[in-house]
Amino acid sequence: MEWTGARYADRPTVEVRTWIDAPPEKVWALVSDIELMPDMSEELRSVAWLDGATRPAVGARFVGRSEHEALGSWQTTSHVIECEPESVLAWAVEDPAAPSAVWRFRLRSERGGTELAQWMQLGPGRSGLSAAIDRMPDKEQKIVFVRLREFERNITVTLARIKQRAEA
């Protein structure tokens, strides 16, 4: 049976949503505090603003350090590409014109609380996953599928931790 899944060049995406029993302003305070994110994430180890920035704004940059059992440790610089308080926060990893990934939190007032979605897109720029694909091009679709499932699991954990803090 031939593997039929997304290729990296397809810019595959993952999105996970949760409902939080807290107003958008409280949820925004958590998702926009990027220095809290290592406590919420399975891979992210540290985050720090660059260039004197202290909060998200379009054009602000931050460095993130991550770790993965199979991929090792790495550092990336991200650029905030969307920032609407209590609504959306998005960043492009590395080159904003051809990012290795794009990440987005979207908040929506719903049923007296907040629907929080976290979305991510692989590519189109090269990433650590690109090296694995280069080594095993015949397994590209499986590599992409497995990594997207990891992101889905990790995002689910992140949203659960944000929900727990917001509802506390």
Rank of each mutant, 00 (worst) to 15 (best):
E2K: 13
E2W: 00
W3P: 09
Y8D: 03
T13M: 05
T13R: 09
E15F: 02
R17I: 02
T18F: 00
P23Y: 06
P23V: 14
P23C: 12
P24W: 00
P24I: 05
K26R: 15
V27E: 01
W28P: 11
A29K: 12
V31Q: 03
S32M: 06
D33T: 14
D33S: 14
I34A: 11
E35V: 15
E35T: 15
L36Q: 09
M37I: 09
P38M: 06
M40W: 10
M40Q: 08
S46A: 11
A48W: 06
L50C: 11
D51M: 04
D51W: 01
G52R: 12
G52C: 10
G52F: 08
P56C: 07
A57I: 01
V58T: 13
V58L: 04
G59W: 00
R61Q: 08
S66P: 01
S66W: 13
E67W: 08
A70D: 09
A70S: 08
A70H: 02
S73I: 04
S73E: 05
T76V: 14
T76E: 11
S78N: 09
E82H: 00
E84K: 13
E84C: 10
E86N: 13
L89P: 11
E94W: 04
A101G: 14
V102T: 15
R104T: 13
F105N: 08
R106C: 00
R106G: 00
T114E: 08
E115P: 08
L116F: 07
A117D: 01
W119D: 02
W119Y: 06
M120L: 15
M120I: 03
Q121F: 03
Q121I: 05
L122D: 01
P124K: 02
P124L: 01
P124D: 02
L129D: 06
S130F: 09
A131N: 05
A131G: 09
I133F: 04
D134I: 02
D134M: 03
D134H: 05
D138C: 05
K139A: 14
E140M: 03
Q141P: 04
I143R: 13
V146D: 12
L148S: 04
L148E: 02
R149S: 07
E150F: 08
F151H: 13
F151L: 13
R153F: 00
N154H: 15
I155M: 06
T158C: 11
L159V: 14
A160D: 14
R161W: 00
I162C: 11
K163T: 12
R165Q: 09
